[in-house]
Design a protein around this nucleic acid. Structure first.
Lengths: 342, 342
DNA sequence: CCACCCATGGCAAGCGATTGCCATTTGTTG
DNA sequence: CAACAAATGGCAATCGCTTGCCATGGGTGG
């Protein structure tokens, strides 16, 4: 493959009768060259079908016009919004977008950053599994922006789960639930910890009992175990770490003939595709994932550590809202005194 | 960001007391250098925290160790499998993986290829919207592999929709349906054309009538229009271009009180996440999308046009199978003589 | 009319690797 | 033991572009 020889700035320079440097500037720094000359050069380039080599450019300038996004699991619908948003924003900014899967592993994440480091201007870390300290360290040498994760001093865009979690608890409380269980996500998941804290404090404000079960992998498959664990607690309100897990829970409850929402209410996070398709449809916290992705790229563009000191890292918090569907309702009339399974 | 100066082979060379070329070879062509020296060099590199610059390497060698995958719509679950498979295989081969969205546009696809061309060793085109001729042209200058698309002379990995379509029609026929409508996908979609052909011929083999409606965008939103169009035809069996569309159709049919599968059967393609969650759950053709993605990268690795002549392009066809769920059943007893809407 | 400034274009030195070619050293072989 | 081949390391050119610095020339103000 590949034509024998790609045309270079030198070819264009010859064709246009100017120096190579002028050609370079005509493209990368247009205002540095006289308009007439510039147009002349562009015409010559056009004629020759010239395409600049991003590699050569990057090698010399240090700017790659490329950003990478690292995601724990690209197949998790939770991230689709963010990926889509980031990709779109990158495209707008004329940046090449690299997507990489870290397989829920902090080590792989770190390794990816290390190896992409030279070929990329910055990283968007979605729900990074890295411990905060590691992120801070990395930020010293790399341009970072976080999605749905916050680390002191690092720019980030997060969906406001704290207030969202409050909405969930309000909803549950207003339906009459007196307690809830949280079916927790992965241990290293920042959101998981965060949600549990918010859940607990919101619950106590309403005088509700809250218990945390798990951790469970954030997948539908894990829903079985999660549901069983909840049933063993006689829970009437189950808040799952995310919709995938919630949907799995729904399945399992159906198998065990526990009516939803009559016997138990289920809530998820993310409002993924499918949340409105399952039966019963899922009450879930919807957040603008795509905005978060977009915002993170924006932050990267604004320069991360490049733009002066690290003292004013930007922090974007996006509002979330509860989408109430059919998986939540009042607790069983006889309440906590009766077991769910007769 | 960035430490003041990255360490280069020259630094390592000095540290190890050898020439830069030796360092280079110690990494990129290990067998070219004596084992003792090599280990010595590696140790020095380790000590200095040396990371090779992929850019410099690529600039000189012409090999970027990077492939790009172009997808019409990254948010379409149809592609998740393929993306995941390709990403995984690329990672295995130690290749950087670039993902790009072409927004269902042939022009954008072509443009993307053009601009990534210099920084990539090859392209995986998923469900390319490009006309066959354009693909052939591009293949002259680029390393290509196709997913779910076939073009004479270009390596490709496709899920066998032809036989799969046969399975769909068999299933429908055996339930007693005498006719079907195809709710077509985008005009430029190769699969759409392909499916329709297969559908028509399989139908005629069974003596069934087949009609094509559309084109419709392959989204749930488009399902409304598709369903309405089908109802206007008194169709009893609707084969949708993909699951997204099928799910949209299901929704619309429910709104219009057309019982599925009592009054009408619906079939989709892809078996996406969600196909088993909707009500009724969707009968659909499942294909190993991830294998297709993996296979495509494999083909790219095998060298595409690089490996000798183009005379033996590899062509991988992966088996598909029908997953029968609740959205298909026998046609209404009174059959075609009664209108679906009273 | 002179001094000075700014806009513009060219020169040439890199950026950090790869690699063809040559020079040694070491190992084989008749 | 001479002669030749293989293994190994070094030199230096090169990939295609960016950019600091300099030279030139026309425009401007005093």
């Amino acid at each position: 493959m590949g034509s024998p020889k790609r045309t270079t700035i030198y070819d264009v320079a010859r064709e246009a009768g100017v120096a190579a440097s002028t050609v370079s500037r005509a493209f990368s720094n247009p205002r540095r060259v006289n308009r007439a000359t510039r147009e002349h050069v562009h015409a010559a380039a056009e004629r020759l079908g010239y395409r600049p080599s991003p590699l050569a450019s990057a090698l010399q300038s240090g700017r790659t016009a490329t950003i990478a996004m690292l995601v724990p699991d690209i197949t998790n619908p939770h991230f689709f919004g963010a990926i889509r948003g980031a990709e779109g924003r990158a495209r707008q900014a004329d940046l090449t977008f690299i997507l990489s899967n870290t397989e829920e592993s902090a080590a792989k994440e770190q390794d990816q950053i290390e190896r992409l480091s030279r070929s990329v201007d910055g990283f968007v870390l979605a729900a990074s599994r890295l411990p905060g300290g590691a992120v801070t360290d990395l930020a010293r040498d790399h341009n970072l922006a976080l999605v749905n994760r916050e680390v002191e001093g690092i720019p980030s865009a997060v969906v406001d789960n704290d207030s969202g979690t409050g909405q969930i608890v309000d909803h549950l409380a207003s339906l009459g639930h007196r307690s809830l269980v949280y079916l927790s996500g992965p241990q290293q998941s920042w959101s998981a910890g965060r949600r549990w804290k918010a859940l607990r404090s919101a619950a106590s404000e309403h005088g509700m009992a809250a218990e945390r079960l798990g951790p469970f992998p954030p997948t539908t498959d894990a829903g079985g175990a999660a549901a069983d664990a909840a049933l063993a607690r006689d829970a009437t309100a189950l808040v799952a770490h995310n919709d995938l897990l919630a949907i799995g829970v729904l399945k399992r409850l159906a198998e065990r003939d526990v009516g939803v929402p009559e016997k138990a209410s289920v809530v998820g996070y993310d409002n993924i595709f499918g949340a409105d398709l399952c039966v019963p449809s899922l009450t879930t916290l919807a957040g603008p994932g795509d905005h978060a992705g977009r915002a993170a790229v924006e932050l990267l563009l604004r320069g991360g550590a490049r733009s002066g000191t690290l003292t004013d890292p930007h922090r974007v918090v996006l509002p979330s809202h509860l989408v109430i569907r059919d998986s939540t309702g009042p607790p069983p009339v006889t309440g906590r005194s009766r077991r769910l399974l007769h």
